[in-house]
């Protein structure tokens, strides 16, 4: 009876052991904090570096000029306009197709092999490296369909194929979160399945779909690799007038300037990065705002 465990809890050795375990606990916690801190420090380091190097390059001329061989005259307007045109094409194609596919898969599709095939395709496309989409664009849009090289039209098409799965996945989640009772209610007063979907389900899911779409668009806006594949890396000094004109886009412009030997381009590159980051921040901010404003708990 004298060897009962309970008596040992007050031992000095046990006390030391507990103290050691508490120390380990604190160490572990500190490691976690350090991991978060290190990640955030890196982010801060990156942003501050870009800001310091690029802030001097930001000016009205920089925003209104297009690419030039002289660093002093180079600006981002041409690339910015190209980016906006490209994103417009992407959105015009990826949004309707993505939303319609999401509606079909969630609301209408029968469970069969075809539906499974569509689902597997979409989930895989969402994880395919972006450069592969560039190869697809090169082979299909340029070499097979003979669309104009280096144009926002082709860039937008390529990015649309890349963004579409993201919109479908976000759209399906938003549609899933619309409660079935709403569908029953509309069916109960004699709405057809199509009316239920377009009068009730789609409007209620729209904020969620839009949030996903904007995030997908922001990603497309920052994408570089697939656009290099379709020839968007030429020196283009005039802003595009339409979606079939040769054009540059902001991330590609950054890439091209980063290769310049002239040190003066370092400032230009960093300034262009600031412009790009501001656009991405605005888009993500809009997405977060939409999500918070329309988030609905059922």
């Amino acid at each position: 009876m004298s060897s009962r465990a309970a008596s040992r809890w007050t031992d000095g050795s046990m006390g030391k052991r507990v103290a050691k375990r508490y120390a380990a606990e604190r160490r572990f916690r500190l490691f976690g904090l350090a991991a978060v801190g290190l990640s955030l420090a890196f982010l801060a380091f990156l942003l501050i570096t870009m800001l310091m190097k690029g802030i001097g390059g930001l000016s009205l001329e920089f925003l209104s000029n297009s690419d030039a061989t002289e660093a002093a005259n180079a600006g981002v307007w041409g690339a910015l306009k190209g980016s906006l045109l490209t994103i417009l094409v992407t959105m015009a194609i990826a949004f309707p197709i993505g939303v319609l596919s999401a509606l079909y898969l969630e609301e209408f599709a029968p469970r069969n092999r075809w539906t499974d095939l569509i689902e597997v395709s979409i989930n895989n496309l969402a994880a395919v490296p972006s450069i592969i989409f560039g190869l697809l664009g090169l082979a299909v849009f340029l070499n097979f369909m003979h669309l104009p090289r280096s144009a926002p039209l082709v860039g937008g098409l390529t990015l649309a194929l890349m963004t579409m799965p993201v919109i479908v996945i976000a759209g399906r989640n938003a549609i899933k979160s619309v409660p079935p009772s709403i569908r029953d209610a509309a069916l109960g007063v004699g709405a057809s399945k199509m009316q239920v979907v377009f009068h009730h389900v789609l409007p209620l899911a729209l904020p969620g779909i839009l949030t996903g779409t904007i995030i997908g668009m922001a990603r497309a806006l920052g994408e570089t690799a697939p656009l290099l594949m379709i020839g968007m890396r030429a020196f283009i000094a005039t802003p595009p007038r339409g979606i079939t004109d040769p054009s540059s886009v902001l991330p590609v412009q950054i890439f091209l300037w980063s290769d310049e030997v002239d040190r003066a381009f370092v400032e230009k590159t960093s300034a262009a990065i600031i412009v790009l980051l501001i656009f991405m921040l605005l888009m993500n901010g809009l997405a977060i705002y939409l999500r918070n404003k329309f988030e609905r708990r059922w």
């Binding site: 709403i182 069916l187 109960g188 007063v189 004699g190 709405a191």
Partner: peptide, 26 residues
């Protein structure tokens, strides 16, 4: 058929629209 045979459900399920729109929808 569903217009002629209406239905009221277990849990109240108004549309997230105005009272007027709820009744006017049908």
């Amino acid at each position: 058929l569903r217009a002629r045979v209406g239905m009221v459900f277990q849990k109240p399920n108004p549309f997230p629209k105005s009272i007027f729109e709820n009744v006017a929808y049908g």
